[in-house]
């Protein structure tokens, strides 16, 4: 998103999480809650990364396997995995990840552009990179996570 350029110095907070051995983070402002994995009800005719729907206090919440969405092998969901409940536009979506690792406070200028080595598909989600204590963390923007346009590539 454009905020990375427009809001210059205001420090922002990010939630970092792991998918396999790689680390990613999302803006904390879009995170509603973090909860444990519960078995989802499968949805017919859904893209493979949509694991199904769960009951979040009366709302029907779709679960996206973020690993599969980014092109990794699908997550073998168990009680160890967590669901990050995020707001994407007007909708609320659960992201299935392996573990939440950190909360980061940083200014936007520390975010570096995603190198060209990554495919255009990966770059449509990972909009920037962070280097912290020798770790490399991909910054994920959620706006296109549920869009069908990127589906063909997936």
């Amino acid at each position: 998103m454009k905020e990375a350029n427009t809001v210059a110095d205001a420090p922002r907070e990010f939630i970092a999480f792991r998918i396999g051995v790689q680390e990613f983070c999302i803006d904390i402002m879009s995170v509603r809650e973090i909860r444990g994995w519960t078995p989802a009800t499968a949805l017919p005719h859904a893209p493979p990364y949509v694991r199904g729907v769960i009951n979040l206090r009366g709302s029907v919440l779709p679960i996206v396997d973020l690993a599969e969405r980014l092109g990794f092998p699908p997550t073998d969901a168990s009680a160890r995995q967590v669901i990050i409940v995020v707001q994407v536009g007007a909708q609320i979506v659960g992201l299935l990840v392996d573990a939440v690792s950190d909360i980061l406070t940083l200014t936007t200028e520390t975010i570096q552009p995603t190198p060209e080595v990554a495919s255009a598909f990966v770059r449509s989600f990972v909009r920037g990179m962070l280097a912290i204590d020798g770790r490399m963390i991909g910054v994920i923007e959620l706006d296109s996570i549920m869009s069908t346009e990127t589906e063909a590539a997936a």
Binding site: T41, H45, V53, I54, G58, S59, V60
Partner: peptide, 25 residues
């Protein structure tokens, strides 16, 4: 319960509901 609210329309499926075990059907 609406499926479209957080997801989209699914062909062949009218809506969802929540059963006694807390799971979505």
């Amino acid at each position: 319960k609406s499926l479209e609210a957080n997801y989209r329309q699914v062909p062949g499926i009218a809506a969802a509901t929540i059963l006694g075990d807390g799971r979505v059907a």
